[in-house]
């Protein structure tokens, strides 16, 4: 029975990683940089969700779906603006420069956001009220909490929406074209600058969804929550093959399972180590990840 529960934990955790990893993998696919500040967008999304929730409860809203939809939509709105601004301010002026330069700028951005939230709300965890308490009991030792059902479902909804967007809409096709060959797409009349902005906005929205879900699931929000989860989601993206969107989803779930089992059978203390070791191994042994295409470095 513990096994079943751990699988469930893995799915929940994996959904979160997958949502965040998509942002990493798309940005990397298009402009070849690690968007280090992505984890911070997730953190800001979680804070916005908490603020919206508190405002709603003070004006006396009581329906759970109202809460959920309002939190998600407003967090997505704010995070999209944030993602767009980050790209505009910190990355666009650096396009075409050496690889490490945008990375350092991204680290700066990440710390800027973290400290901005810390200064505006305080350096401590904030409790998030339980929105959907309780669980679905199967047997004495096996139960599924409602949140554990909600998270994969919401993730699935957004994944479907996103897949539809990227494969069927005109903008999505333009995104993929830009990802495959930026210069060629530009020649064909696609405004690649706009497309890059769109990619940042989409990545940020999915991160915000993850942020809201996590804050409801774990019950706290704080300024430092984005850093580690950001690195782990990056690991997931690399694991799936960076640049590949289905790869990011797969990578997220694989990492989620690995962590759940690691903390169950090795010890909770070492689960972070497991994901870092996994990252190192993939980069050394299988640099193109599970679903990625091998990259040839041109000289």
């Amino acid at each position: 029975m513990q096994l079943l529960e751990q699988i469930l934990n893995g799915i929940t955790l994996g959904s979160i990683y997958a949502l965040i990893a998509i942002g990493y993998t798309m940005v990397y696919g298009v402009i070849g940089m690690i968007n280090f500040a992505h984890g911070e967008v997730y953190m800001v999304g979680a804070f916005v969700g908490l603020i919206v929730m508190t405002i709603l409860s003070s004006i006396g809203a009581s329906l759970v779906p109202v809460y959920l939809i309002a939190m998600l939509l407003i967090a997505i709105l704010v995070s999209s603006v944030l993602g767009w601004s980050i790209e505009r301010v910190a990355y666009r002026p650096l396009r075409g420069k050496h690889r490490l330069i945008p990375l350092i700028s991204a680290i700066g951005m990440s710390f800027f956001l973290q400290n901005f939230m810390q200064l505006s709300q305080g350096p401590r965890p904030f409790a998030v009220k339980q929105l959907i308490p309780g669980s679905f009991t199967v047997s004495e030792s096996f139960s599924i909490s409602y949140m554990q059902i909600l998270i994969p479902v919401v993730t699935l909804v957004f994944m479907v929406l996103f897949t539809y967007f990227i494969s069927k809409t005109k903008l999505g096709v333009a995104c993929r074209a830009t990802e495959q060959d930026r210069r060629m797409a530009n020649l064909l009349g696609i405004n690649t600058d706009t497309i890059i902005s769109v990619i940042f906005v989409i990545g940020a929205s999915l991160a915000a969804v993850a942020g809201v879900l996590v804050s409801l699931y774990y019950g706290t929000v704080r300024d430092t929550m984005g850093f580690i989860i950001g690195i782990k989601a990056f690991t997931a993206a690399v694991l799936g093959g960076i640049g590949s969107i289905p790869g990011a989803m797969l990578g997220g779930f694989v990492l989620g399972f690995t962590e759940s089992f690691a903390s169950a059978y090795i010890g909770g203390d070492y689960k972070d180590i497991v994901s870092f070791v996994l990252l190192l191994l993939i980069l050394l042994v299988l640099p193109s990840g599970l679903l990625g295409k091998a990259e040839i470095e041109k000289v």
Binding site: P93, P102, S105, I107, G108, M109, F112, N115
Partner: peptide, 15 residues
């Protein structure tokens, strides 16, 4: 504000 300043320095310097 020190960490805020450091992070801004990193961004501004890169640009």
């Amino acid at each position: 504000y020190r960490m805020l300043i450091f992070s801004l320095i990193l961004i501004v310097m890169m640009i």
